[in-house]
Design a protein around this nucleic acid. Structure first.
Lengths: 231, 231
DNA sequence: GCCAGTTGTTATCGACGATACGGACCTGTG
DNA sequence: CACAGGTCCGTATCGTCGATAACAACTGGC
């Protein structure tokens, strides 16, 4: 899964540098090739396309994104991790605005999986929240809400960077979405207790599994729990 | 303010058509000129730049946006109008995905005022909500929150258009933000009543003004109210 | 040793954004 | 009517870009 071809990695990093320093958030294949001392056909053999190069840059951005997150998450309290995750997302957008737009802005032909992988990261944290009984929704739905709000806020901040100086707006949005997604107190059952219990068990199974049941039985049980929690 | 030059308008519409039908959300100045039967230098004299043309297309998209909104708002209940505004925004994004991205995605060199004007429209509706005592925040802050969430959700839907078929996600986001911005019931004072009253008076003055005070006095009063409502 | 696959080069193509230049057209003045 | 000034548009062209064809050098396995 890691990058093995050093030339490929060098071109990706050169493209990323050029993307960050270009005024119009664009890159030129020629300049990328010059920066690493090879000729154009090399790029097209490695990435197939300029789009392929951009996809690789976006996927590489995901590595940087996870590196930034791995340094701050997993404090034991999944809800606290969730808050830190939101702020880390905003910090990443501020530090790499062009790369951020490449990763999170829709491109019609993109084959990059960066956004999906960020979603998976978020779903993992949310599943831990659900296991603690702190989640009102299914992790998948909650993740879509949180990520959309996070991206929308970050893009607004990128358009007017002065907003980054005052985190009030970002925190307001964060609280608005989180209060709609999380239970006010971890052990409170302010909705249907059956549904809450089912969500919690589903998350626990997702995280740790169990030795008491066969894998097939677990799979069926999970589908039953989804039928309880979904409609 | 309206478009007077028919040639300019024709080029904008041609560019918009080409933008909507292009697979990569790009336009070619040559093709736009061919579509209206003129040559390239005409475009550069009218718009100065390709960026200028795109800015004009974005601003023209704002006209279409307001036309869609004027047909459905102003039902007397400003909160209902606010809900319809959110759904109308999503419908606009679904109907014109490429134009939507041009209008609401950050472009480093853009001089388009489309997003600011959409903000102004939203602030106007929110001011009516504040006048009805239904707003917990200043209209400006609430508008930033709502617009960012709306854009984030719309971009997510554009990236995966299947989401448009089920409005559940969009409505969940809408409720999350609105419940953070609006009072649960219009006459309820669930926060500092002084602050709420000040917000309400500020909005009323913003909307209708008064004959009882001189303009200078009103201006000073508004500044006092802002000092009350702000921290 | 040789052949196939890999890896890189040079040279080139077509499309694009942008511009220099010249000519047609209108307009007002004598 | 003739003519000068400005406005408006087309022709031709430049430099850059993404992409590819054709060819050359290296490598490993039988």
């Amino acid at each position: 899964m890691a990058e093995t071809d050093p030339l490929r990695a060098a071109m990706i990093e050169a493209a990323e540098r050029q993307l960050a320093s270009s005024s119009d958030h664009e890159i030129a294949t020629r300049a990328v090739c010059e920066a690493v001392g090879v000729s154009q056909p090399v790029l097209y053999r490695l990435f197939g396309d300029k789009r392929g190069l951009l996809d690789a840059v976006a996927d590489h951005g995901y590595e940087r994104y996870t590196a930034l997150k791995a340094a701050q998450e997993q404090t034991g309290d999944p809800v606290a991790d969730l808050h830190a995750g939101w702020d880390g997302h905003m910090a990443f957008a501020q530090a790499n605005p062009a790369l951020y737009q490449l990763m999170f802005t829709p491109r019609p032909w993109s084959h990059s999986t960066a956004r999906e992988r960020v979603m998976d990261l978020l779903v993992a944290t949310l599943t831990r929240c659900a296991a603690a009984g702190a989640l009102k929704l299914e992790p998948q739905t909650a993740a879509q809400l949180i990520l959309s709000a996070n991206v929308g806020t970050a893009l607004d901040h990128i358009a007017r960077p002065a907003l980054f100086e005052d985190p009030a707006l970002s925190h307001r949005m964060r609280d608005a979405v989180f209060s709609h997604v999380l239970t006010t107190t971890p052990t409170q059952h302010n909705t249907d207790p059956l549904r809450t219990a089912a969500l919690r068990l589903h998350a626990q199974l997702q995280l740790g599994g169990t030795e008491a049941l066969e894998p097939v039985e677990i799979a069926l049980l999970q589908r039953w729990l989804e039928r309880i929690t979904h409609p």
